[in-house]
Write a protein that binds this DNA or RNA. Structure first.
Lengths: 337, 337
DNA sequence: TTGAAAGCGATACCAC
DNA sequence: GTGGTATCGCTTTCAA
């Protein structure tokens, strides 16, 4: 099936029909000044009549601006993207981009192959800017973006090493600090933390928050036991923790998935929640409400994370100089504590 | 901050450096025939030395091909996208598109505003093809795509009205039929179905499968009670159903979310699962494994849905004539039955 | 095989 | 205000 390459009116045809020069027509299109009212109206009419739609590609070529930005999600397996977290980010980003008149290109930079594709995209200036998420320590994607990017890059969450000039992050340490303090305030004596992979800054920050709360309360923080942000991972490390520290009565989990896994492991071990052990999650995704018992969790403004990244990127593209952003978290208390 | 518009080598410069015409250089670039071995190598060398990268925009303008396709997700609220379902589709599609050398543009066509943006994108031929998902009855997005699209469109799941020429769908009726048969085979006497919104074909098909199984078994199908594919919705309609038909002992839910909601409602009503009531979900997402008890569910190949859509679209763009596809489902038995 | 030249469909600078 | 013209960087005839 060959698709009818139906001829579309060009700007020249619009100009001709309106009886003006192409320059004038172009000015009207970009509502630039220096066009008389009559000509402007004539052009507008011609556009209507001809059903003219500007060709974005030609525009991009001439103006060197594509009105497209890329959301790059790193991570070794594409499956990390299956985390509903990203879907929410995208919802937020999508809405904000729309307001800025930008389109969203999605790049899952998992395989070497996809990273090469990304490198080409950036190197060839296929997009006007990049939002980058889920980068890990020594992430190859960092090199790609760093080297090839002559376009602005906004980070979602900070990477492990240096702080990039532009990022939107969530107050992860503050969140787990609140969580731990909440548990301690309710009289829990032995509070442990189930961490995510420690080669990510977010995991380190979350552990730091827990640690600070413990030290501030004069308790000894337990060393981190690490999972992988998944439910089975959470169940596994919870079981492990129970063996090493059977006396734990409070858990701060690195995210809701792991908290859900912990619930399952605790149930398996015959511990009541919150009777014997209280559990706090992090994210406040659907799973937190669906879990049984419903999870007390640290709410983070995921959609806002997406929309703020998008807004920041749009500002950069527009030549402004936005500042990095740290979004607040808040504790949502449910049945698990 | 102004980003350095560093000058990049053009094809002419490559040609000059290689001592050949631009035509020859272009041929090499698109590895077209009619170039002598020496010239070809000279061009390749020049490309290396200059670090030349072709400009995709210029290419798109001249060749009328952008190498970009759009994944359009309809639905009145952007939140429908929060369903992990779509994330899996994207993972599949993304991988397949990469193989075809296509980039993925994501369009959440929720608001009128976003739909206008979509209309422009399509009308202006901003993409080479469209994958369209989650359209509902009388969905405004259908008009947009139908009218403006001079590019191929592949549906993910069929819309309510006519069958589009190209789609990838899942055997929804077959899935719920299996589910209902499974319950009946285990001796359940009174099996009901919790449906999704009946203005979607997928919901109708899933109800049809249940209905067929019941009739084939000589039972009277219960009329559909409809939720909205969400967990709270599932809990709500389950509670309602219990009032109307307290005798139910088997539930086929339209998806896992609703099944999870049903579990909660049943627990609230003091019914044991699977003791008093057996529950089957649909999707086989994480929530099915995390639910307590773990859900027996109809597995559908979501990632394959995405990759097959992408492959089909790539084929259409390449001028081939692929056929519609119906993907099989299979029952995964867990603790809830 | 080869290369000159004519598009592709806009933007933007510049005299007028 | 106005319109002519060069330019953006590549593809694609077409005649040699």
């Amino acid at each position: 099936m060959t698709h009818t390459p139906r001829r579309r009116p060009t700007l020249d045809e619009v100009a001709e029909r309106a009886g003006v020069s192409r320059s004038a027509a172009s000015r009207v299109l970009n509502n630039a000044p220096h066009v008389s009212r009559e000509k402007r109206e004539a052009v507008l009419r011609a556009i209507q009549e001809l059903g003219y739609v500007p060709n974005p590609t030609a525009r991009a070529l001439a103006a060197r601006q594509k009105n497209v930005v890329a959301l790059v999600i790193s991570g070794e397996a594409p499956s990390i993207f299956a985390d509903p977290f990203f879907a929410r980010v995208i919802v937020g980003a999508s809405a904000a981009l729309e307001e800025a008149g930008l389109h969203l290109m999605l790049c899952l930079a998992a395989s070497d192959r996809s990273r090469r594709g990304l490198a080409e995209l950036l190197h060839a200036r296929g997009v006007d800017g990049v939002m980058l998420m889920a980068v890990r320590e020594n992430d190859p994607v960092l090199a790609i973006v760093g080297e090839a990017a002559e376009v602005p890059v906004v980070f979602g969450g900070r990477p492990v090493g240096d702080e990039p000039p532009w990022y939107v992050d969530v107050d992860n340490a503050g969140g787990t600090r609140q969580a731990a303090e909440h548990l301690l305030a309710r009289g829990r004596q032995r509070v442990a933390m189930l961490c995510g992979p420690l080669d990510t800054r977010v995991s380190r920050e979350r552990y730091r928050g827990y640690r600070e709360a413990m030290i501030l309360a004069g308790r000894e923080p337990l060393s981190p036991v690490c999972g992988d942000f998944t439910e089975p991972g959470g169940a596994f490390v919870m079981a492990e923790l129970l063996e090493r520290h059977p006396e734990v009565d409070g858990i701060v989990a690195a995210n809701d998935n792991m908290a859900a896994g912990a619930l399952r492991a605790l149930r398996g071990a015959g511990r009541a929640v919150p009777g014997d052990v209280a559990v706090v999650g992090f994210d406040d995704l659907d799973v937190a409400r669906i879990a049984d018992p419903a999870l007390t969790t640290v709410h983070q403004p995921i959609q806002a994370l997406g929309s703020e990244m998008a807004r920041m990127l749009a500002a950069l593209i527009a030549g402004e100089e936005p500042s990095p952003l740290l979004l607040p978290t808040r504790l949502v208390v449910r049945a698990s504590t």
